[in-house]
Amino acid sequence: MSESEITLDAGHAAVLEPSPYAVQSKKLTMWLFIISDAVTFGAILFGYAYLRIGTPNWSTPFHFSPNIVNGLIMTFVLLSSSLTMLAADAAAKQGRKSSCLQWLGATVVLGIVFATLHLREWFHMFDEGWSLSKNPLGGSVQFGATFFSITGLHLMHVISGIIALIVIAIGYNTEWLDAGHVETTGLYWHFVDLVWMFVFPLLYLMNVAR
């Protein structure tokens, strides 16, 4: 007897085990991606922390204004975007399509504001002479190397998230995608927020001139 015949005779429930996690496969896949990405960020942040403590002539170029104020605004914007994403997820689960799309739109706008503030800060630093291999203050070049690498990787995640949210919003509007896709993309967006909770204190607050 072939496997398909067994399936037909016994029914799918008898052949396929229920998911031990009781979640959709796309959600489990996103969780697996998130933990692998968490390890990636963990590795580069460990590398940064080692360099930060182990480099004697480390530069601390940031001041409360404008650098930390800008960082605080960016943090507020990103945390708020998680809140709008939660509202979009809740609306999608309740089948309130227009409300979900509005909240997704708000999340995209906040994501764009975050990316714009970030790029503005980068260009300001480029103007001051900072780059991956240059330090205008004359200290170790490791600050520029780690700052632009880590914030660049995070910014790439934010931009990817914005694109994903736009695709999900279009797909949800045309009913090509469902509430599960909104929730799964929300998981990714919250993870990007979670990573920033480490990036802001470690790369900004640890580098305030004292």
């Binding site: 939660l86 998981l187 927020d193 979670l194 909770m197 480490f198």
Partner: peptide
Amino acid sequence: AFIEAGIALLYFM
């Protein structure tokens, strides 16, 4: 940061 991440993981995610 770990406290923040834990809260985000448990509630937001």
